[in-house]
Design a protein around this nucleic acid. Sequence first.
RNA 1: GCUCCGGUAGUAUAGUCCGGUCAAGUAUGGCGGCCUCUCGAGCCGCAGACCCGGGUUCAAAUCCCGGCCGGAGCACCA
Length: 503
Amino acid sequence: MAKKKVGEEKKLPPLPNADRYSRIVTRFSPNPDCVLHLGSARAIILCHEYAKMYKGKFLLRFEDTDPRLKRTALEFYDKIRDDLEWLGCKPDEEYIQSDRILIYYEYARKLLQDGNAYICTCNRQEFRRRILAKQPCPCRGSPPETQLERWDKMLNGAYSEGEAVVRIKTDITHPNPAIRDWPALRIIDTDRYPHPRVGNKYRVWPLYNFACGIDDHLMEVTHIIRGKEHLTNQRRQEYMYKHFGWEYPEAIHYGRLKITGAFLSKSKIIQGIRDGTFKSWDDPRLATFLALRRRGITPEAIRQLIIDVGPKTVDVVLSWENLYAYNRKVLDPKADRYFFVESPVQLTVKNVPKIFHVKLYLHPEHPERGSREYRIEPKNKTREVQFWVSRTDYDKFKEEKLIRLMGLFNIEITEVNSYAVESHYHSEPYQEAKRLKAPLIHWIPINAGMPCEVVMPDASTKEGITEKLCKKLRLNAIIQFERFGFVRIDKVNGKLTVYYAHR
RNA sequence: GCUCCGGUAGUAUAGUCCGGUCAAGUAUGGCGGCCUCUCGAGCCGCAGACCCGGGUUCAAAUCCCGGCCGGAGCACCA
């Protein structure tokens, strides 16, 4: 078997019963109550990837049918669209459930008419008690005429919140009580809780299983790919499909995806934003796509990761290191290299014999990408030159007498104190440094630096100096600071602000 | 508690349906070396796993039963 090389991709297993459908249709159906995060990546990428693989359709459907409990907000519709586009998963079609309320009414009426659903006006506790005892509630047996009468009352406001609910008839003796006569539509006082898109236009709203079940059929979804928390929802919906004489689509229920140390629950993210723990949706501590993007995690890396993880039902607990490995594969060949000196200290080199013209390549394996040059000219009688070097290299200054300034020349350390390092010129050839096993460090000429702030994944910052010419870097470019790590350019003014991705 | 689902190295995954070719493949991480003017990349090597117990069978990671562990659901949320 051929060895797996970079760029060679693992393939997804085939979709079950794909040949039974003339056109594969998948869908991603978020509730627009939060931005998307890595936890949604499995649904999105699997759906999109399978649609692409079978030359089918990938749908985006906003499931915004709860104006009351969920914090559905206008801003999230667009943020979700942006996230999908960034991920490279642009939907072929888009639907919004709050635009489809009348369609749901139509199907509800039909169910009521056919005696496959009923309107329950029982007290919630009372109903629960009965259903747990496998007993039908009194409303269940009423004739369709009564049901339709009640339906009209629901629609025209004769009932208020909580007083009536449409239930789908299932098997009231089903071993799983959750499946017995589940609720399909309820009343919401939209004068008090207006919907962000349609305000108080409707007061009867479908629940998840009803709206989703109807839509999957109407939109001809062939393969539902969603988290395994929906397994019992499939069981519930199957009863409704049977009432309508529809065939239930294929369903794949994958396990949850978690990353050690990341909050992947919407509620935690939203709570953190509210209480100010996180400054914004793209706070580097978050695993939202917005945050990952800001940190320089590429969509290709996420995509490959999800494909490798596959559609299994087991929960997956990844480490950040794992994601980084995928990202590094994407970034390494593309990222230009620059120097960044963390916690700068001044280095003086004396006895520099001549003027040096150094050429530093932007990428060691791709010289054709270009280079930058520095003219190193000794000053004064002492023939000295000054550089910024990093305090993180202090241990080297103390332990090794001989150090090589990458691409330049070798120096011998003569004095180290807390604010400066003194040295003198030793030799030029790299071979010499190699022979004497001198450590390599990076440097910036004292007048060629500009301040730079690195925002770390834990939101802390590291201050330092980078090369002045980084000012010309494009926003959002991802570069590598040699011996430091990959970073994304976030802001450029007098100071460069970058976000740290990983080593 | 009830109803489902699942358990392969640190992590993730292949193999499980249709028992043998699996003394278990791959990636990542770890370790060692080589290479490279980065602590990045690349190359080579090393260590590392079938949850446990029974059963069926000539043969079980794969089939059956029991146990243990983990997960999901049990909303007028999605």
